[in-house]
Design a protein around this nucleic acid. Structure first.
Lengths: 327, 327
DNA sequence: TGGGCGTCTTAGATCGTTCTATAGACTGGC
DNA sequence: GCCAGTCTATAGAACGATCTAAGACGCCCA
């Protein structure tokens, strides 16, 4: 296993000094076109790649954004994907750290800090406000998909109130009056959506029925069975996976969706888009949120803007699981 | 944003030298119990955390394992999870790098290299043998879930031949003779499974029917529709997601599973385990494979064992989508 | 011809660690 | 009372990059 070449090696090969090679490698001003070519040539021949440990250590700016995500949430992967794209465009790099089984969020974040990240993007953080504030005192922190994080952090989230309102408006316009909400249990943003649902129904003079649910198909399945006892004409689920469970429990009971009952999801995740599912859903447009979070983090870093809470309005994606209320 | 404390700060606070603090922080021998306590106390008060960039740069051993995974494959997240657990047990750390949209595998790997990883674990690598060999010449590389990677890499994979054989034995024992295989298209390990299926069927004197499929529900759905034209008594799918699509197309056609036709998946992923799905499946036991890959990487690093190709035999998980062949 | 200026280049300090070599203190054996 | 041996502590050189300040060089103009 041969040692990897260093700046010094390239310098010797090209017959110049270390510093000059450094200048060329980072496209900094201070080298003539001729030497630039000569150095690049030598670097390529040696297969030189700058050692990011050394680079990160020395430079004041690491241009590194830390992203924490959860392995148990497939949705997060879509966001990570978009974050990479966004960061690259603005010349930043991304360091990932997962919160996994036996690896709490605090550990994930600490490791990003130790790596020299300049800003943090936390996807659906579960830490308490004070802990988050502790981190935010050291560097810009952007909370993605959760907005009740205090004034010292940025947040980029989707307007849950608006999302639920849009959903209810749509269902109302289809003639639905007996609408049930299966909530997200103790999932992040479940309380907001639940309250928005209650408020929206109250505003229409309708009775709000909330069934305890959760973030997974299992939870939806359980809630769906409960709904069967007194079937509403439409169900608004906490998220798509939950909606899928609900849908399934209806199918198992021989009910047709949407003829007998409409089911509306939330997230517009890949599950909703599956051709045989074709779930109507409230879309938060995660890639767009991810881009916004990245931009927010970088803006905080480069300008001196104060933390802000960015809220985007979700929109409805109508597919095949919603229809007019049955007579 | 105050500067974070360094070794030097702790040393001054504790009234000892830098080197001694370093010794204490690494739990290395060479410090008395008394000073150890004193230093630890000072470090805690200052909120000191070692800077991993500097640590990684200086130390010959970084104890870092690089893991590359794909954001578009939910299955990979389960593996990452298990890898973290495995690495922690053996005192190693993990650096993640995702291959995402617009971020090819080579880039993911390079960035892990630049970070100073001592070994690489690549989940279902898609690079060519020669490129992989190029990396393997520099450090131990373990390919996870793919075994045709040449002699210079390690691989930890599941025995596809055995998996298919077990599946066919099981289906045979249930009286199935008209068995179809929906393959994985151009997915990794699709060819192996397809050939194993052909061989197994030939060995039983049965006609093998292979339908082009893929790795997603969509692919399964398409293949399922094709199967409807001449329904077999059992279908062996490339993976669970594909099986789900097949199952769905059968349901849509009013067929009962498993009474009219059995469906068998592959992977035993979280999708198969969903209570309303209860898909019978060939389990590769991914967490176990992940652990094995981590162990393999570390063993290569610590001992001087040559690369090996570890193959684990999958096992069958029988749930509700398989049953006796209809008369 | 020599001083001033801008461009190209370089030496050397620096980032925060780990590591090697060595100094000092203390013990025990002869 | 001295040397060997162990243990604790320290100084100083790495690691591989970036950054600052200053040197070398060419060119123009007086």
């Amino acid at each position: 296993m041969g040692k990897r070449p260093t700046l010094m090696d390239v310098a010797e090969a090209a017959g110049v000094s270390r510093a000059l090679v450094s200048i060329v490698m980072r496209d900094a001003p201070g080298a003539s076109e001729a030497t630039r070519l000569k150095v690049q040539q030598a670097a390529k021949e040696l297969g030189y790649r700058p050692d990011s440990r050394a680079r990160l250590l020395r430079s004041s700016r690491t241009r590194l954004l830390g992203v924490s995500f959860s392995t148990s949430h497939p949705f997060h992967a879509e966001i990570v994907d978009a974050a990479y794209a966004g960061a690259t465009v603005r010349g930043y790099d991304i360091a990932l750290s997962a919160v996994a089984n036996g690896r709490p969020e605090s550990r994930a974040v600490e490791s990003l800090l130790d790596l020299g990240c300049e800003a943090l993007i936390m996807i659906s953080p579960t830490l308490g406000e004070d802990e988050l504030a502790g981190y935010a005192a050291r560097l810009p922190v952007v909370s993605l998909l959760r907005d009740d994080v205090g004034e010292s952090l940025d947040s980029v989230s989707s307007d849950d109130d608006a999302g639920i309102r849009i959903a209810l408006e749509y269902l109302s316009s289809l003639g639905h009056q007996r609408i049930a909400h299966v909530d997200g249990g103790d999932a992040v943003s479940s309380p907001q959506r639940r309250e928005a649902f209650r408020a929206g129904m109250a505003g229409r003079g309708l009775e709000s029925r909330v069934i305890p649910g959760g973030a997974t198909e299992e939870d939806g399945l359980r809630a769906g069975r409960e709904l069967l006892e007194d079937l509403p004409t439409a169900v608004l689920a906490f998220n798509d996976r939950c909606a899928l469970g609900i849908w399934e429990s209806f199918r198992a009971a021989g009910l047709r969706v949407p003829e007998d009952v409409s089911v509306l999801g939330y997230d517009d995740s890949q599950f909703a888009r599956l051709s045989y599912v074709q779930l109507s859903s409230v879309s938060q447009d995660a890639p767009l949120l991810a881009r916004a979070a990245v931009d927010r983090a970088i803006d905080r870093l480069e300008g001196s803007t104060p933390p802000a809470h960015l809220v985007r309005t979700p929109h409805l994606v109508i597919r095949n699981t919603t229809g007019p209320a049955p007579k």
